[in-house]
């Protein structure tokens, strides 16, 4: 569980996050939604400890990040996994090396143990015949699987995903969403996902917060989001053409 209390973050005097308070639950896929530029990535990077908020606190299962010393912060960081928007795979390393990298850096395991663990997660994310390939030689969907495998190889307690299905076709996007959700449940991880994709919202939106211009505009789950009369949220939800048509049909009484 991650508890966020009144987070503020500014760049060059311009406040990007203007006081966000919320809770992300363990074993659940928690979604941060909002239009581009609403501060989702900045918020996620605050949760990761890559950005330090000027004000507010973030607690990870009761541990307040700002009160930890450097060593404790590093240990907490190693319990986090991150799937970046563009996958951020190390392009000079093969798929296998990418996945083994966190193990190589932070454990004293033997090469064979690392290989076993790597193959375990490779199987889990259904990556076939890609071990020796470079990231540039595989498709976007495969890259995403590698990124997920690399993020979970150290068995993190917290998993963060920045727009995990951007640039993927709708079908692959759904498969990736479901994969993340299954992994979350299986390992009882607190997962936080940035997205602006309504398909993800409907598929895996167990807890949703809606950001608008740095404020938390609304929170709820995937059934509530279709019932709210918050204008910003409904605008967002029905900005997709398909939903617009569904909405129109609903209003006409189908």
């Amino acid at each position: 569980m991650i508890e966020v209390n009144d987070i503020h973050k500014a760049f060059h005097g311009e406040e990007i996050l203007k006081g966000i308070t919320t809770t992300f639950h363990r074993g659940k896929t928690n979604l941060i939604i909002g239009t581009s530029g609403s501060g989702k990535t900045v918020f996620l990077k605050c949760l990761l400890g890559l950005f330090t908020p000027e004000k507010g606190t973030i607690s990870y299962d009761g541990e307040n990040y700002s009160e930890l010393d450097e060593e404790e912060k590093r240990r907490l960081r190693q319990r986090m996994g991150m799937v970046f928007q563009g996958s951020a795979l190390f392009d000079s390393m093969t798929v296998e090396e990418n996945i083994m990298f966190p193990l190589k850096m932070f454990t004293r395991q033997k090469k064979s143990e690392m290989m076993d663990r790597a193959n375990e997660v490779i199987d889990r994310v259904n990556l076939e015949n890609a071990n020796k390939k470079l990231p540039s030689e595989i498709s976007g969907g495969m890259q995403k699987r590698v990124a997920i495998a690399r993020a979970i190889v150290t068995r993190p307690k917290y998993l963060f995903c920045d727009e995990p299905n951007s640039g993927l076709d709708p079908n692959t996007a759904m498969v990736i969403d479901n994969l993340i959700q299954e992994i979350t449940v299986e390992n009882d991880i607190t997962t936080v996902i940035n997205t602006h994709d309504m398909n993800s919202v409907m598929e895996i939106g167990e807890k949703i917060i809606f950001l608008k211009k740095g404020f938390l505009e609304w929170e709820g789950d995937k059934t509530q989001i279709f019932k709210t009369d918050n204008e910003a949220v409904t605008n967002f939800v029905y900005s997709s053409n398909l939903f617009k048509k569904v909405r129109k049909a609903q209003l006409q009484g189908f």
Binding site: K45, L48, L50, R74, R77, Q78, M80, M82, F84, Q85, G86, A88, L89, F90, D91, F101, P102, M105, F106
Partner: peptide, 17 residues
């Protein structure tokens, strides 16, 4: 620079490197 723009540097930092 490429590692910066493709967030590979962030990926290193997240891992505590």
């Amino acid at each position: 620079g490429t590692m910066r723009v493709t967030e590979q540097i962030d990926a290193l930092e997240v891992m505590g490197i």
